[in-house]
């Protein structure tokens, strides 16, 4: 008996159609988006991970829920691939360390699960502060984010209404993306 339930995932034929129809600009957007995930921390290029992701999708190891945009879905598959590769390296590292055999960890990227270079981070913060030199609200938001304050506290300190906070965020978002289209080269575990 056939079910009356609507299909929640794309069939393999529909998936192929969706993948076969990617324009050059779509690819540019996707590549930038994949670079933002810092694929090199998994020891891979965006190309390697994209191919692996397609393989998983076409084998139906990862089903594509209807309603999820192509770009978002592929990005999520790649993100989980990076996560599992980094985790695999970490597990390999702890195993190798446990048996105290340094030869076994020689081919592992020991920085894979570490925070990135402090110089990169402070340079990025300085650049952001410089760009928003004339915008007191955005500088106030950045400054208080540096102190790890939550949005409600920042609004209170910077004397921002919900609307003006949203407007400042929109501007910050737009400028930050234009300054760092592939994101700031920094990551930490669980991202």
């Amino acid at each position: 008996m056939e079910s009356d339930e609507p299909e929640t995932h794309y069939s393999i034929g529909e998936v192929e159609e969706l993948l076969d129809d990617i324009s050059d600009d779509d690819y540019r957007k996707m590549i930038l988006s994949l670079e933002q995930l810092n694929p090199h921390r998994a020891g891979c290029t965006a190309e390697d991970l994209y191919e692996l992701a397609l393989d998983k999708i076409l084998k139906e190891d990862r089903q594509w829920p209807k309603g999820v945009k192509r770009h978002t879905f592929i990005r999520n598959v790649v993100r989980s691939l990076i996560w599992s590769k980094v985790k695999g390296k970490k597990d390999g590292l702890s195993q190798a360390t446990a048996i105290e055999n340094i030869d076994d960890i020689s081919d592992l990227d020991l920085t894979a699960d570490l925070r990135n270079d402090e110089n990169v981070i402070s340079k990025a913060v300085r650049e952001l502060m410089d760009v928003f030199e004339d915008d007191a609200y955005i500088r106030c938001i950045i400054f208080n984010k540096l102190k790890s304050f939550k949005a409600s506290k920042i609004k209170e300190i910077c004397k921002l209404t919900e609307n003006s906070y949203q407007a400042a965020m929109k501007k910050l978002k737009r400028n930050a993306r234009q300054m760092y289209p592939t994101g700031i080269d920094y990551w930490r575990d669980g991202q």
């Binding site: 957007k29 930038l32 988006s33 933002q36 925070r115 981070i121 990025a124 913060v125 952001l128 950045i142 984010k145 540096l146 102190k147 790890s148 965020m169 910050l172 978002k173 737009r174 930050a176 993306r177 760092y180 289209p181 994101g183 700031i184 920094y186 930490r188 991202q191």
Partner: peptide, 16 residues
């Protein structure tokens, strides 16, 4: 603070 960079990277991803 690493929260700032998490926050900025999240904004960049959202905008993209």
């Amino acid at each position: 603070s690493f929260e700032l960079l998490d926050f900025i990277n999240k904004l960049i991803a959202e905008e993209t």
